[in-house]
Amino acid sequence: MATPVLDKADEAGRPEPGFADSPYITVTFRIRRFNPEVSAEATWEDFALEIDPKERVLDGLHKIKWDVDGTLTFRRSCAHGICGSDAMRINGKNRLACKTLIKDINPEKPITVEPIKGLTVLKDLVVDMEPFFQAYRDVMPFLITKDTNEPTRERFQTAEDRERFDDTTKCILCAACTSSCPVFWNDGQYFGPAAIVNAHRFIFDSRDDAGEQRLEILNDRDGVWRCRTTFNCTDACPRGIEVTKAIQEVKRALITRRF
């Protein structure tokens, strides 16, 4: 479980579960289970765990998968809030399971864990991310320059120019924002906050020359104008990106471009 050095420290300082000053508490995980090969219906299943409240929701899911029920299915890769694999709806709010401490979400009550909404559930907490990545690909999230030759040196940029789009470079494509957006829930044709954030990252990059094309793509019927500024995306973003602000900046760029 940990390195030998830590194990020694554990033996010395940390009491076993069940003792009076044990850090372990009993937490109920209420997980939305779905297996299309067994039933067409999704159901809630409760798991009671002895767990340290300073651990994360992902640790609880690991305990369940490794020790209780191996059929529990969820995505996670790095487990440290960078890869963006384990976005899920925890206690009704989109979060990364690997960045949510149990003590921060009231362990007295059952902790509900559901797949993110608006995308097709494949099994348990795993959803089909294809519509999400389709919208991402549609905004051309890569550097496009006018000069066709390979550059012979680095493309320079001032600190101010870099600062312009700094916030939107933080996106890890976890889909927490897009799957919290009520407009995306309706028909999934709206580009969604994540795609607009990643378009923003290049539209406002002084080294990129295709900002105009990307603005035209987002001027679509299902582009930025479907945003209702409900701020669900900004609340959901585990990286603290000001998503709604980025969407508004794209709207403003579209209008100032025209007038």
Binding site: P131, E216, D220
Partner: peptide, 16 residues
Amino acid sequence: IEAPRLRTKKTPKSTR
């Protein structure tokens, strides 16, 4: 399992 929200050829053409 069909992905109902996938952008397919049947999806209405975007209005630019």
